[in-house]
Design a protein around this nucleic acid. Structure first.
Lengths: 146, 146
DNA sequence: GCATAATGAGCGTATATACGCATTTGTCAA
DNA sequence: TTGACAAATGCGTATATACGCTCATTATGC
């Protein structure tokens, strides 16, 4: 058992969530003209990069709960940015496929994303941005099961 | 105008959101027995630290949209962990006050929080955790208005 | 003192997040 | 073969997040 501590105002999770909120607002505002949020753009670009995948596979890749991804797909499917096709071999699965329309929207949105990313790096410093990304990847990959 | 870039798989915002999700799950699971989520514990402990505040004031302190905070208060108010009192001087405002019950729950939950924070630091390394917090504070404080 | 501007907060709406349970389909061993 | 188990997904529920609009109240300028 670890010693009890009281410096909860330095909670790693709370500051992480704060930073995620701030960054999300910055990126979403910059992306506003594209009609996509950063959360949606990340789905489309990941799908574009890895090719058609099932919900579970894409959720694993994106470090997202599968039920969360499933619900996040709704707006993208409604707008026709991706298609959900029944698996052929295994009829339990659903293949997620980026549509032409989805690819066009994603590629266009990347211009705004580029602006957002660049201004982010300018705001905190490029070296800091690089160091931050490295640390965040460790947070994502780490094992917390003690 | 910055040069167009295509390395969107290195999006600072997306990795930040991933890390926030992973950390939130770790903390929420560790806190589960307390009946509080880390987002809720952070409200109670902040209020405990800074004393009674209006919604706008607390939202500013916590780097939260004021409408988000307003809605997040509902479960805490329902459980009797905090009271929402009408402002005396300015009747537009609402004072948020931590109740005895809320303080008791928060203090108890801090034991679990301590475990979560410690195992987080062990999982990524203490030095990394310290460096990460410093960088995240910069993200929160930075000016992105170009 | 009153008309107007500014401020504090709520609500409508939409999306994001994830846990637990249920359903459908596939696999594998007796 | 069939019954048990496993896997993929959906759904109910609850919370988190924030933008735009509205309402009530306060502050301010003339």
């Amino acid at each position: 058992m670890a010693a009890k501590r009281t410096d909860i105002h330095r909670c790693a999770c709370t500051i992480l969530r704060q930073a995620a909120r701030v960054a999300t607002q910055h990126f979403d505002r910059t992306l506003a003209t594209s009609g996509l949020r950063i959360s949606q753009l990340s789905v489309l670009t990941t799908l574009r990069y890895v090719g058609p995948k099932t919900i579970n596979e894409l959720a694993e890749i994106m470090v997202l709960d599968r039920t969360t991804l499933g619900r996040n797909l709704k707006p993208l499917e409604r707008e026709g940015y991706l298609a959900v096709e029944a698996g052929e071999d295994d009829r339990r699965t659903k293949q997620l496929v980026l549509t032409k329309k989805g690819e066009k929207v994603a590629v266009k949105a990347m211009d705004s994303w580029s602006d957002a990313q660049t201004s982010f790096e300018q705001a905190i410093g490029l070296d800091n941005a690089i160091a931050l990304s490295k640390l965040l990847r460790q947070v994502v990959k780490a094992d917390y099961t003690k």
